[in-house]
């Protein structure tokens, strides 16, 4: 489904991704781990089309179509979904209105009729229960005043509403308490499907106890330095990154937010 070849990307003339190669098939779950500042979020953002990042070389195709030439919103309509590491707030725009606009934009793209307010409300209530968010959150501004954990659950809720083909989850497990981690992992597991690929960035093995990935990759200094099965995550948990020849200190200092 997704094929990344020798992808290089930079931000403000600083090269961050230095030749990423990755193939993800429909139905698979891939986990990406790696030290802070290694480029995990950059990869996620580049795939979603954030033009703050410049792709300098390489290619990305999704279902044999060139992904990189498409605008962000076109990629979204083709089924690319990004759950943000740091979801932003949009004050005054209700979650409900935001999601309905989004769902209808995608439906419109598929040539389906728009969902009316009542139909949408029903669906939204169901899904909000699934991620354990009180339906009252639907009326609040997008992420406005949400706690860290609520924001993450809101991201999963949107993934469930939009039913993407490729779900990229950037540290959706960070900052969650034990119960919320369970809720979020259940949500991700509910997303697992034959025709859907999931790429999740995480720092923690504990997430992978709940969501067993098909592959684990280690990203360091802009390159995938090691790939393996779920056992690789366990090994990283035990031994850290040093044994892979990665200098942890240097990168860890760059961002630990």
């Amino acid at each position: 489904m997704l094929s990344i070849k020798n992808l290089h990307a930079s931000v403000e003339d600083k090269e961050i991704l230095k030749g990423i190669n990755l193939d993800i098939k429909a139905g698979e779950v891939h986990a990406i781990m790696g030290p802070n500042g290694s480029g995990k979020s950059t990869l996620a953002q580049v795939l979603a089309g954030n033009d703050a990042f410049e792709v300098t070389s390489g290619s990305v195709t999704m279902n044999d179509e060139d992904l990189l030439e498409k605008a962000t919103e076109e990629r979204a309509r083709d089924g690319v979904f990004l759950a943000f590491q740091y979801p932003v707030e949009i004050p005054g725009v209700s979650n409900l209105q935001f999601m309905r606009t989004s769902v209808n934009a995608l439906r419109h793209h598929r040539g389906e009729s728009e969902m009316n307010a009542a139909e949408f409300m029903k669906l939204a209530r169901e899904v909000s229960k699934q991620v354990d968010l009180d339906p009252a959150f639907l009326k609040r501004g997008v992420n406005e005043g949400f706690s860290g954990g609520e924001k993450k659950r809101n991201e999963i809720m949107q993934a469930l509403m939009l039913q993407p083909k490729l779900a990229i989850l950037d540290e959706t497990d960070s900052g969650l308490d034990i119960d919320a981690l369970k809720v979020v992992s259940d949500g991700v597991n509910a997303l697992r499907a034959e025709d859907r690929a999931i790429l999740m960035v995480t720092h923690y093995q504990r997430l992978l106890d709940h969501i067993v990935p098909d592959f684990v990759h280690v990203l360091a200094e802009g390159k995938i330095v090691k790939s393996g099965g779920p056992e690789l995550a366990l090994e990283l948990e035990e031994r850290g990154y040093a044994w892979l020849g990665i200098k942890e200190d240097e990168t860890a200092a760059s961002s630990a937010n």
Partner: peptide
């Protein structure tokens, strides 16, 4: 904010107005 809206399939015109 613009990127979030666009990532959810909402075009820029709609996003700004929203």
């Amino acid at each position: 904010q613009m990127f979030l809206c666009r990532q959810r399939g909402i075009d820029m015109e709609r996003a700004v107005s929203m």
